[in-house]
C-alpha cells in the first residue's frame, strides 16, 4: 500500500511539471486558437538559457527565472510579430505548418549552436528529498509542483481581475465583438503569445535542476503538453493544471503496474478517447466544445 502511495506521489510530482508546461500552451490556444507546435522548443530554449546562466555566470537555475522569463516573453513577442501575426487569419493547416517550421528552426539552431550533448547543472539541492511520512518526494519536483499551483492561481486572478485579462477573455469568447468594443486584438494576441512563452520559461528554469537539456528535449514534453491541454479542455487553465497532474499519475501508475515501455501508449490512447468522446476535455466548460471542434 505504501508502494502504491509512493507511485501516486511520484506521479503527482511529475504531473506538476507537465501542468506548468501546459498552462502556456492552453493560454495561447484558448485566446488565439492557434496550436503552437513549437511550444516544446520554447521550453528547450528556456532550459538552455537557464543552463548557460548557470554555467557561465554561476546563476542558480531558480534565480535565473528572473532573467529567463522576460527573455522568453521577448522571444514570444518577436516570434508573434514575425511568424504568427502574418498567419493569424490563415487556414488552420497553414498555422500548423508555420509553427512546425518554427520548431524545426529552433531545434536545429540549438543543435547547430550547442551540439547534441546533454547538458546538466549540478546544484546542492537537486537530489534532496523530503519525507512525507513513509513517502519520498524530490525537493526540486516539489518546488516545480508548488510553483505550478502559484502560476495557475496567478493566471486565474489575472484573467478575472485585470483589464488585460478581461480583454483577453473577451477575445477568447468572441473575437469580432471584442474588436467592436475597441479592444486592440492584435496587441492582445501579442500579449497572449508572449505570456504563453514566458510561462514555459518558468517551466524551463524549474526543470533544469531535475532534468537535462538537449536540442530535441522539447518534443518529449511538447507532445505531452498537447495531451494535457486537450484533456483539461482547450483554453482552460484549471483544466490544464488538473490535466497535467492526471497525466503524471496515469504515466506513473501504468509504468509500475503495466509496463514502463507502454506508459506513453496508455496516455496517448486515453488522449484519443477523450478527443473522440469528450472533445471539450475532462474539465471543459460548457460551450468549450464548440470552440474545440472548430
Amino acid at each position: 500500500m505504501i508502494e502504491f502511495f509512493q507511485v501516486l506521489v511520484s506521479g503527482i510530482m511529475l504531473g506538476g511539471i507537465y501542468s506548468l508546461i501546459s498552462i502556456g500552451l492552453t493560454l495561447i490556444f484558448g485566446i488565439m486558437r492557434i496550436l503552437n507546435f513549437a511550444h516544446g522548443e520554447y521550453l528547450m530554449i528556456a532550459m538552455y538559457l537557464s543552463f548557460w546562466l548557470f554555467k557561465l555566470l554561476n546563476i542558480d537555475p531558480y534565480v535565473s527565472i528572473i532573467i529567463v522569463v522576460p527573455a522568453l516573453f521577448l522571444l514570444g513577442i518577436i516570434s508573434q510579430k514575425l511568424v504568427i501575426k502574418p498567419i493569424i487569419n490563415a487556414p488552420p493547416t497553414m498555422q500548423i505548418f508555420a509553427t512546425v517550421g518554427l520548431s524545426l528552426v529552433f531545434q536545429n539552431l540549438a543543435l547547430f549552436l550547442w551540439k547534441a550533448d546533454y547538458r546538466t547543472v549540478k546544484t546542492s539541492y537537486q537530489t534532496a528529498t523530503i519525507h512525507l511520512g513513509p513517502m519520498l518526494v524530490s525537493f526540486p519536483r516539489m518546488v516545480a509542483f508548488l510553483i505550478a499551483i502559484i502560476v495557475s492561481l496567478g493566471f486565474f486572478y489575472f484573467l478575472k481581475n485585470t483589464y488585460t485579462g478581461k480583454a483577453l477573455r473577451s477575445i477568447a469568447q468572441n473575437r469580432e465583438a471584442a474588436m467592436l468594443m475597441g479592444i486592440d486584438v492584435s496587441k492582445m494576441y501579442m500579449i497572449a503569445f508572449a505570456l504563453g512563452t514566458a510561462c514555459v520559461g518558468v517551466a524551463g528554469a524549474l526543470l533544469m535542476p531535475v532534468y537535462y537539456v538537449f536540442p530535441t528535449v522539447g518534443t518529449y514534453f511538447g507532445v505531452t503538453a498537447f495531451v494535457v491541454v486537450v484533456l483539461g479542455g482547450m483554453g482552460n487553465m484549471t483544466g490544464a493544471f488538473l490535466g497535467g497532474l492526471l497525466i503524471g499519475v496515469i504515466e506513473s501508475i501504468s509504468g509500475v503496474y503495466i509496463d514502463p515501455s507502454l506508459k506513453e501508449a496508455v496516455y496517448f490512447i486515453i488522449f484519443i478517447l477523450v478527443l473522440l468522446f469528450k472533445p471539450s476535455g475532462l474539465f471543459g466548460l460548457r460551450g468549450a466544445e464548440e470552440v474545440g471542434l472548430k
Binding site: E3, S10, L14, Y220, F221, S252, S254, G255, P260
Partner: peptide
C-alpha cells in the same frame, strides 16, 4: 527484468518496480 524507452522523461516507475 525491466525494459523502458530511452526517450522517456521519467524513470520513477522503473525504479519503484526495482525497489519492490
Amino acid at each position: 527484468m525491466v525494459a523502458y524507452s530511452a526517450k522517456t522523461n521519467d524513470l520513477s516507475s522503473v525504479i519503484l518496480k526495482l525497489k519492490a
